[in-house]
Write a protein that binds this DNA or RNA. Sequence first.
RNA 1: GCGGGUAUAGCUCAGGGGUUAGAGCGCCUGACUGUGGCUCAGGAGGCCGUGGGUUCGAGACCCAUUAUCCGCCCCA
Length: 416
Amino acid sequence: MKFQAQRGTEDVLPAQAGKWRHVESAWLELTLLYGYGEIRTPTFEDTQLFIRTSGETSDIVSKEMYTFRDQGDRSITLKPEGTAPAMRAVVEHSLCPPGTVLRLAYVTPFFRYGRPQKGRLREAHQLGLELVGANSANADAEVLEVVSRFFAKIGIPDSVILLNSIGRTECRERYRAAILEHIAPWLAEQTTEDQEKAHKNPMRLLDSKDEKVHAVLAGLAPVTDFLEDDSKQRFETIQALLTEAGVKYRLAPEIVRGLDYYTETVFEVQSDKLGAQSSLCGGGRYDNLIGEIGGAATPSVGVGIGVERVLLALEAYEVAIQDSKPVAFVVSAGQDAAARNLVRELRDAGIATDWDIESRSMKSQMRQADKSGARFALVIGDTEVQESAVQVKELAKSEQFLLPRAEVVKWLQERA
RNA sequence: GCGGGUAUAGCUCAGGGGUUAGAGCGCCUGACUGUGGCUCAGGAGGCCGUGGGUUCGAGACCCAUUAUCCGCCCCA
């Protein structure tokens, strides 16, 4: 019986793991700089948590969740996104009492059932951040600033944030009605299925890839024309703050997002290098979510960044990420015990060291030293043992000299 | 969930109804018995994704299945 990783899941192999560490630690370091504390939430939650927050009619809830009954007959769902679990924890542990502001960051797997494609897995990973309890435009702007700085930090050039505001509930009601009115003649000729879909959530038509839909929507006023005064005010302030912070953004009326919990600010970062799964990052403001799950009304903003997609983008932009290499490779010329002791001493001293545990030929060991990328080969044989010394060879330069055994650690520490 | 493409060595791929299935790269060994990269020589490694079928004969053709890729849907 031969097994393979489940459909839509991936092994991250040692050759790739360095890139993952690079991206994840960049995120945690950056958010720490902005005062975000890390939170880790469980992999599965009560199914109702996601139904209540993402919305029963959202695609994620209606057809993409990994939901099952456990042996205690509870309905369990593997988290399909990071925000709802984090907010559940905030409410459960009273992390953000009224009047306070809370900053949370995380790296988490998430699960969505669908046909896998490049950049779309069933188990994927997300870098996330939530700014909880903050109502001011400063909050929206800060989240966007972190996103922008993050992409710059890891080396993805010229990322532009696509920004929109979809207003609050009342505004959206009016806009939905306006859309339906605008498309009514066209919609009447569509299939029942398309009609139902359009009525369920008219705004999703805006980010359709179908040219015909675009044509039908031509002439429709943008949602921002329907914003209440204070929403409009916030939207403008955010833009001013982004300009002040040097964050590149573009107004994008077609960005509407697929989760029901968003209010007012929504945004995405896309890349044309990723094919159909072009969204690297998405987020927005969710002022009603915490109230929806039993907490006091708490305005909040957050973002999720797809790790796999960021890695694809890094690859597409040919951003070089150096793998960690050993400093020293110890070569034994028939002196395995002495070599082993040297290796152990170096490792104990914190110097990354490798050697050939299979006692192969000298030639083979030198080849391995070369391939390992180590800066120095340390050769230890009969003569060296006799003289209490080690041959140190700087591989790139092919230069070699005899160094007293007692000085090896110190010598390498000065060069590591 | 819908439509289409692909599956041959560790990797990238060629081949094509007929005896022992190939290349490049990678890997291992060796080329004055203590020294890597370059070169040269040798070698290991594949039931041609899996299961059925057609055929005298299938890695090739057909069906199913699994995985993957592209598009849709959706989003990270």
